[in-house]
Computed example of a mutant assay.
Amino acid sequence: MDYELAIENAPESIPGGTGILLIHPSTGETDRIDTDFLKTDTDRILVISTRTTAREVQQKLEYYDVDETKADILDTLSVERGYSRRGSDHVHYVSSPDDLDGIVDITRDFLADNDGKRRISLDSVTEMAYYADEERALGAVQDLLDLLEEYDAVGLFHLSEEVHDDADVQAYKDRFDSIVYLDEDGTVEADF
């Protein structure tokens, strides 16, 4: 199954099973790319947020006109920070951004429980590595990529390049056939 892609300078579509690495500066404005990816040609979306709370993700989706009825959100921050949580069928929680097994398990359940075209956004791998470590984060990214392939889904993985050393950035890049580069000035380049 192919998925349309709404990312400038990238192919018009990608096959199911594709993971895209979005490399951006720490000051980069990734919301536009992320939400364009999520709202194009899709039946269900899962936003895995290691950077913001579920409420902030909902506000972002609403602001960028993403159909929230299609969205599940995995909030990794609220429990650890002691924020109030409103559980629902479409908002999930793990204890912290370093609960990588929990993140992978909820992603697997989402993919198994939903049919059609499914997209996942992980914002961000950088935060995941900050809370866990590079090696464990890299392992979780590989597990998520394997799930995308198994379930014919697609995913967008955010990575803030300057926070990681060159060898770690290369290790992430080696796992992806599709990479999008966002420059500080907003220029988008793609390597597919």
Rank of each mutant, 00 (worst) to 15 (best):
D67N: 08
H90N: 10
R55E: 14
I33D: 13
K117R: 06
E4W: 01
V125W: 12
T53R: 02
V57W: 07
A132V: 08
D65N: 06
I106Y: 05
A10Q: 02
G87Y: 10
E127K: 06
E80T: 02
R118S: 09
E127V: 13
D72E: 06
V66M: 01
I33E: 07
E4L: 13
E80D: 09
D89F: 07
P11A: 07
D98H: 13
Y64C: 01
L22K: 14
A71N: 03
L77N: 05
D36Q: 15
R136Q: 09
Y3F: 15
M128P: 14
Y63D: 12
L74S: 05
G87K: 13
E134W: 15
S13K: 08
V125D: 12
D36T: 07
L138Q: 15
Y93W: 12
R119C: 01
L61Y: 04
L61S: 10
F37R: 04
D41E: 05
T40S: 00
L22H: 13
R86W: 02
I33N: 05
R85A: 09
D133L: 11
G116W: 00
T35H: 03
H92T: 14
V125A: 10
A132D: 07
S84N: 15
D67W: 02
T42R: 02
D101H: 15
V79W: 15
Y93D: 08
T40D: 00
V57A: 12
F110P: 14
R108K: 11
D72Y: 12
V91Y: 09
V125H: 08
